[in-house]
Every structure is written in structure tokens, then in C-alpha cells.
Design a protein around this nucleic acid. Structure first.
Lengths: 227, 227
DNA sequence: GTGTAGTGTAAAGTGACACTATCTATTTCT
DNA sequence: AGAAATAGATAGTGTCACTTTACACTACAC
């Protein structure tokens, strides 16, 4: 198929497709003449994957590029393959000045020890989790941190199912793509389901007779200040 | 305290603080003379909250502003208060052309019915979840969607604990802030814990004797194409 | 065989975003 | 008195993900 058809099939505008090719996240078509190229199903699939990562997963293009870079490197053994999403997804900025003796980071390390989880020291999610914990403590919401073990239990159960799905694929490419897809889209799915669950729980509680829940005295305080 | 101290205490540069005040997400200081103002602890706290939402929660400033707007509106009853994070967090762009008879959207609706969750039709997370489901199906990863009910069970259990923490606060302001904080930082926490869990599960599986897991024939395919 | 649409490359432009810098006119510490 | 800090207004910066434009072809219908 040619450019126009690829654009129609994938729903991605032609200039954007060209941009992706320029950025190296979509392979160029096979040139049939100096200015004519043809594309195939793999291109459509790849575009779908890119759009999912960018739009649903809210990944920056640079991270997508990094991911495909890793995927193509022959040296990537399975271990790396399974872990690479983490690194591609990690904000280079977020992990900035993470002192190894940081309080929140130590707390995360303790949690992992307690759970007996095997996670490398450099895993970016350690820093990400520590950042969240640090903020919660600073804001006086340390009680939320106490839920961490329940979060962990839920996450581990899901992870087992997810990794199971990945291992079900029997070729390296398929497995790598499953990692990426489940990693990115699973995140989006879980976040959305979590919000839906919160809404349900909140709705139920508010429908209970008033006496059963704490009163809510309105107290003025530091709130909005918009124009 | 004055600007310099506020900046030092919060770790936010002065020009940025001024920018936040300009944008209305941080209240201006109390003017003691035409060009002198003083700030207090509430400003420090608010700055901490803003930075947490922006840096950890990766929220755009505009969404933060929207949130504080809602929080200040006296008309916001508890129901709205508990649900407002959802709306502030929702990308205005993401929900774009969501036809009500969209296949994935119907699937999400069915799931909610099956779970007997009470969630408004317009809840943005319905569209977000539908988008993830749609992408997964398009990419041939429908099997991941089968995990949805397990995701849901986990999310609901967490939501109950989270809403419990919110209801523990006894003033409207505190409760509203708990909603925001737990909503935003809880997301970040869960996402991070999930990735750590995946790493642990992956590591364990790869340590098993080879015979126990499927073979991995390497098959060339459409992969990277970087410069 | 001419015209219209499609295709490639290269480079510049766009709009959103989150700051960041500059300028002016004060005011406050020392 | 003089250096440093402050508020307010306005303009500029760098990044990102595209978009647009300019130009030189090629493919195919009529």
C-alpha cells in the first residue's frame, strides 16, 4: 500500500507519519522508485502501537524511540527485555538528585526487603515510589503510606497474571511487544479502573444514612485564588 | 515570612512562585505596602501540594488551576468534591469523539453493570478505560482485557481503603485536599509499585530452570529503524 | 501527452506549555 | 545613605509534537 492508504488505515495524518519515519520510530517504506515507497501491515500495526503508547500511555515520542532502540538491539537478553519498559518510561528528570541515603528511598528499600521482592537498586520505580511517599509525608498524609503493603499485594497479584500473558507468547518479538503493550496500556487500564472504583465507593458511602458517617463542619481556609 | 524565605522553605524559585500567583494557583501574599507582601505556612503547604501534583502526579498547571477553582466554589457538595479530581485530571482532548455506542465503551459499561458499580455515564475514566481496551484489541492483545475483572477487584479494595482515609478527615478543606492528594499521589504510588512487582515476578520466572518455561525462538520482524 | 494527484526530502514554522528574564518603581534592612 | 529585596507588568526561552511550505519529481487517467 502507499502512503495515502497507510494514513487512512491507521488514522494518522501523512505529515505525522513522515515525522515518525524521520524520528526513526517507524521504518521507512520500501522504495520502488526515488520518490515512491510501499508499506505493509507491519507499518499499520506499528502505527497503532505508537499511537497507543503516545495517546493512551501518554509516553513522549523520545521514550517510544528509546524503546524501539532497545527492542532492536540483538544483545538484549530476556531479562533486559522484560525490564526495559521501566527504563524507557522513566522520566530522566524525575530520578535526578536521588541520594542513596534518602529517607523515602530507604523506606522503599525496607518495604521491598519485607516483601522479599527482587528489584535492582537502580530500578527507576524505586525513585518514583520514593518521590510519592516523600510528598505524602510532607503534606501530612502519611496515613496513605500505610496502605502501601495493600497496594503491593494487589500489584503483585496483577503482575503475575500479566507476566503470564507475556510468557504465553512464543517468539521474542511478540513477547517484547507484549511487555510494552501490557506495561503501558495496563497502567492506563489500572488507573482508569481505580478511578471508577473510587467513584463507586464514594457514591455508596454518600448514600448511607448521615448518622453513619462523620459530620462535615465547613471551615474556611486557604483555597482557590483564581482571577 | 517574605518571598525569599517562602522560596527557600518550599524549594521553589521566586520567579516560579510569582508565576503560580499570576496563574491563580497560589494566593497572593498579604500586602503590607504597595510592593511588600508577607506569606505564611499555608503558602508553603500549597506550594508543596502544587509541586507534588505537577512533578509526581505529572498534572498540567491548567488542571491544577481547575482543581483549586472547584475546591473554592462554595456550591461544591461532597459528591462533587469526591468526584472532582477525576474531571480535573481528565484530558479534555482524550474524551474527544467518544460516540456513546462505541464498542469499547459499551464493553466498559457492561463491565460496570456486571460489577454493579455505580458510575455516572459521563465519568471520563469510562472513556479512558475504553481507549485502553480499544487499543489492546486492535493490537491483538485482547487477552489482557480478560484480566480486567481482576484489575477491578484489586482497584475496588484499594478504593475502599482510600475513601476511608478521606472520610477520616473531619473538615471540608482537609477532606478535599485528601481527595486530591490520594487521587493524584495514590496513582503514582500504585503505578510505581506495579512496576516493581512486575520486575520481581519477571526476575523469579527467569530464575526457574529453563525446561519449565516456553522456548524462545528468535524470529526476525519489524523492529527498530533508528538512524 | 498533458494534467492532476500523490510522493519524497529538507527546512522552517506553529501552538501549547512551564517557566524565566528584564524593566521599573518602590521599600526595607544595615 | 546605599545595597538588597519586592511587586507588577511585559516579553522572551526552550521543549515538544507536530505542521506547513518549498521544491522536484512520478504515476496514472483521460
Amino acid at each position: 500500500m502507499r502512503m495515502t492508504e497507510l494514513s487512512e488505515r491507521s488514522g494518522v495524518p501523512i505529515p505525522t507519519i513522515r515525522y515518525y519515519i524521520r524520528e526513526g520510530i517507524l521504518p521507512a517504506g520500501r522504495l520502488t522508485s526515488p520518490n515512491q515507497a510501499t508499506y505493509d501491515e507491519t507499518h499499520v500495526h506499528r502505527l497503532t502501537l505508537i499511537r497507543a503508547m503516545v495517546e493512551v500511555g501518554e509516553m513522549p515520542i523520545a521514550a517510544v524511540a528509546k524503546l524501539f532502540d532497545h527492542l532492536q538491539s540483538k544483545s538484549a537478553d530476556e531479562y533486559v527485555t522484560l525490564g526495559l519498559v521501566q527504563y524507557a518510561l522513566a522520566d530522566t528528570s524525575a530520578a535526578e538528585a536521588a541520594a542513596p541515603d534518602d529517607e523515602a528511598l530507604v523506606e522503599v528499600g525496607d518495604l521491598l526487603d519485607r516483601l522479599d521482592w527482587q528489584v535492582r537498586e537502580q530500578h527507576p520505580s524505586r525513585a518514583a515510589l520514593a518521590a510519592a511517599v516523600r510528598s505524602l509525608r510532607r503534606l501530612g498524609h502519611g496515613d496513605v503510606v500505610d496502605l502501601l503493603e495493600r497496594y503491593a499485594a494487589a500489584a503483585h497479584e496483577l503482575a503475575e497474571a500479566e507476566v503470564g500473558l507475556v510468557m504465553r507468547r512464543d517468539d521474542l518479538d511478540g513477547r517484547a511487544e507484549a511487555v510494552v503493550t501490557i506495561g503501558v496500556l495496563g497502567d492506563a487500564m489500572l488507573a482508569a479502573v481505580r478511578r471508577l472504583a473510587q467513584e463507586d465507593v464514594a457514591t455508596r458511602i454518600l448514600k448511607e444514612p448521615k448518622e453513619l458517617r462523620p459530620s462535615t463542619p465547613v471551615k474556611p481556609g486557604l483555597r482557590g485564588a483564581r482571577r
